[in-house]
């Protein structure tokens, strides 16, 4: 059980990086960006292929990030320059990335085992594993370090002039333009940042599970949204720093919930259905509340 939990927490922390990326588009820019489904796989593909070609695992993560940023740029250009609706722009990039990722990997699945003797390649987790930590705990330590660093960087960034402009863009683009800010630029910047993070997450996941797979991004947007919403519901929406921390907690909580329902005997094939229903229910919460309130009022009026 401890092993299951530590596995869930480690996975949650690696996906937390992706969750922060989803938060930037979904909550800050007010765009549901489906690019992430492709950019998370892209991060994994780039990390895997570069490591197989002998590149240092840290550098491979950096290259993965660059790939994700390029994907974000593509979606950003589709939205701003070509005026394609955000949802469709994301879908287009996502579909394009499927082929691009296959080209990057050259196959649909890459293993991070050495060809010679099937021993494991060095990853960003190796230093902690050599300290005597098991795989899950090594991933938890790395995950914590990365998430903490990202929260600090993003907390700073969204307090800067550019960061404020990006936040305002999702809020009221008309006002932002009236204040002399090019909203095309802020939208593109937000998408680049978001997808860069998502790709880092993909690279971290690939290194942790020791393979990259073309299918690994499927449904990832829903997992990201579920994590964002769980974080908001459980840990509140007040204060930017608290919100960033709640994203990580939300991602971990999501994984723990999944681990528990699987442990309780839910077939793994039903996972995505379960996640979709959870997210739909959470998003529908305001409507339910409204309905209950009017019901209450009408009952009271009837008395």
């Amino acid at each position: 059980m401890v092993h299951i939990l530590s596995g869930a927490v480690s996975l949650g922390l690696l996906w937390a990086v992706m969750t922060i990326g989803v938060y930037i588009t979904y909550r800050i820019l007010n765009i549901a960006d489906l690019t992430v489904e492709g950019s998370i796989t892209m991060g994994a593909s780039i990390a895997a292929i570069t490591m197989i070609n002998g590149i240092n695992p840290y550098v491979s993560l950096f290259l993965a990030m660059l790939g994700g940023m390029a994907a974000g740029l593509a979606t950003g250009l589709l939205i701003t320059r070509f005026k394609i609706p955000p949802l469709l722009s994301g879908i287009l990039t996502m579909i394009a990335l499927y082929s691009i990722n296959l080209r990057i990997m050259g196959t649909s699945n890459l293993s991070l085992l050495k060809k010679k003797d099937f021993s494991e390649m060095n990853t960003v987790y190796t230093p902690f594993e050599t300290l005597g930590l098991d795989r899950n705990w090594a991933a938890i330590v790395v995950g914590l370090l990365v998430v903490a660093a990202l929260i600090a960087i993003l907390y700073w960034f969204f307090g800067t002039e550019i960061g404020c402009a990006i936040r305002a863009t999702g809020n009221n683009p008309n006002m932002v333009r009236a204040q002399g800010i090019n909203t095309d630029t802020t939208v593109i910047l937000g998408l680049i940042l978001s997808n860069g993070l998502v790709a880092i997450s993909g690279g971290l996941i690939a290194q942790s599970q020791r393979f990259a797979d073309i299918q690994m991004g499927t449904g990832s947007i829903v997992i990201g949204l579920a994590s964002v919403i769980i974080g908001e519901v459980l840990f509140g929406k007040n204060g930017f720093l608290k919100r960033l921390i709640s994203l990580a907690l939300g991602a971990v909580t999501y994984r723990v919930i999944i681990a528990l329902v699987l442990k309780m005997g839910m077939p793994a094939n039903d996972l995505k259905l379960f996640t979709a229903i959870t997210v739909a229910a959470a998003l529908a919460l305001p409507v339910f509340k409204e309905y209950l309130l009017t019901l209450k009022k009408s009952v009271r009026a009837g008395e």
Partner: peptide, 9 residues
């Protein structure tokens, strides 16, 4: 009317 950078907002 000013360039916005990475200074505090």
């Amino acid at each position: 009317g000013q360039r916005r950078g990475l200074k505090w907002g």
